[in-house]
Computed example of a mutant assay.
Amino acid sequence: MLHEPHSDLWMLFDYEGVKRALYDHEAFSSVVAPPEAMTSQWLVFADPPRHTKLRALIMRAFTPRAVASLEPRIQALSRELLEQTIERGEMDLAADFSVPLPLMVIAEMFGAPLEDQPRFKRWSDVIMALGYAVAGSEETARVQGEFASVSSEMRVYLRDLAEQRRAVPKDDLLTRLVEAEVDGARLTEEELLGFFQLLLSAGHETTTNLLNNALLCLVEHPEQLARLRAEPGLLPSAIEEVLRYRSPVQAMFRVTRSEVSLHGQVIPAGKMVLAMIGSANRDPRKFHDAERFDITREPNPHIAFGHGIHFCIGAPLSRLEARVGLSVLLERVRGFALASDAPWEPRKAIHVHGPTRLPIRFEPRP
């Protein structure tokens, strides 16, 4: 545990400490966004009982069956994206595959036209920019202004789509969200917008980084890639190891509700805490040979998707997109190699991990 006095931020690095900060909502609050912030409507920034109500409503729509039903379409979209670049023998995996795939899936889940994908990408980029603007800077004011602007756009866009679904229901996520009801309560327009923003940013960013990080791990560990090609059934286990070894989400903020004793130190009440998920997933006290990438690792109790009541609702979707997307890549492509020796540029937001661009070379398979 580390206290950074300049910002008065407490940072947790070990597995048990991070896990406690993620699940012990009595000691660590998730309400880290100020009430006037538009992100305060997001599920991840809520505590019980509000969190309980919101999650129950969303889970009525975001069911395992609904997610599983997307597999054929995710496979078709993955193939369509790969066909655009496969004959060249090279591509930017991020721009050509890992970024557009989850955006296209989200657009379809909401019943939005695929031609709206560039708009979704622009919105997502603005939302993610909130994660790297330094508080009090001119950059922060600009980013928050852009976020307010796109939030207005998204509100109108989502309102129109929701009205269409109320008039003519469809078999899509938006219809289920509009119709979801628990104890007579339904999602308000602001709550629906908050979930849409969360899915568009966190849902998109996590899957993009998971796909990019998976390829990086396999290229850097060719013996593991060879093992995976010889035993395709190891792909789910390989994805779990990528989530541990190169966690797409590296950190989550919490605020102490009261004094918290941890590892012989006391964090006072009302202090901002940064739980370092990426560090926890490499804790040698929890994971044997933690610095080794092993696609057969068992057990693998990583906390890449959080833990407890805030465990990521989109985890099954992200895992499905990664499994299908990587299956298509491995099936159609061989001889993966990075197309540049230059260090890859990380994505800007401090809480995520992965490359902004990932140029690769490969050989198409028949």
Rank of each mutant, 00 (worst) to 15 (best):
H3V: 07
H3Y: 13
E4W: 01
P5N: 07
D8R: 14
D14S: 13
Y15S: 10
Y15L: 10
K19Q: 05
R20Q: 15
L22A: 12
L22N: 05
H25T: 15
H25V: 15
E26N: 12
A27I: 08
F28D: 11
S30V: 09
T39Y: 02
P48A: 12
R50G: 10
R50L: 12
R55P: 11
A56M: 07
M59P: 05
M59K: 08
M59A: 13
A61K: 02
A61Q: 10
F62S: 09
A68N: 12
L77S: 09
S78G: 06
L81N: 08
L82V: 15
I86G: 03
M91I: 06
A94F: 01
F97Y: 13
V99A: 14
P102E: 00
L103S: 13
M104S: 10
A107H: 01
G111S: 02
D116G: 03
Q117I: 11
Q117D: 00
W123Y: 02
V126H: 01
V126I: 15
A129I: 03
E138F: 00
E139W: 00
E139Y: 00
A141H: 08
F147Y: 14
S149G: 09
M154G: 08
L161F: 02
Q164P: 07
T175Q: 04
T175N: 06
R176E: 10
V178M: 05
A180M: 07
E181I: 10
G184F: 02
G184N: 07
L193K: 05
Q197E: 10
A202I: 09
G203M: 11
T206Y: 00
L210R: 08
L210D: 06
L211S: 12
A214M: 09
E220N: 13
P222L: 04
P222A: 03
A226W: 01
A230H: 06
E231P: 07
P232L: 08
L235E: 06
S237C: 09
A238G: 04
E241L: 06
V242Y: 01
L243N: 05
R244Y: 01
R244N: 12
R246N: 14
P248H: 01
P248R: 06
P248W: 04
A251Y: 00
R254F: 01
V260I: 13
G264S: 08
K271H: 11
V273Y: 00
L274R: 02
A275R: 04
A280G: 11
R282N: 13
R282F: 05
K286L: 07
H288Y: 06
D289A: 15
F293R: 13
F293Q: 11
I303P: 09
F305C: 11
G308P: 08
G308T: 12
I309L: 05
H310R: 07
S318G: 13
R319G: 10
L320P: 12
L320Y: 03
E321R: 11
G325H: 05
G325S: 09
L326I: 15
L329Q: 08
V333Q: 02
P343M: 07
K348R: 15
K348H: 12
A349T: 15
H351A: 13
E363C: 14
E363A: 14
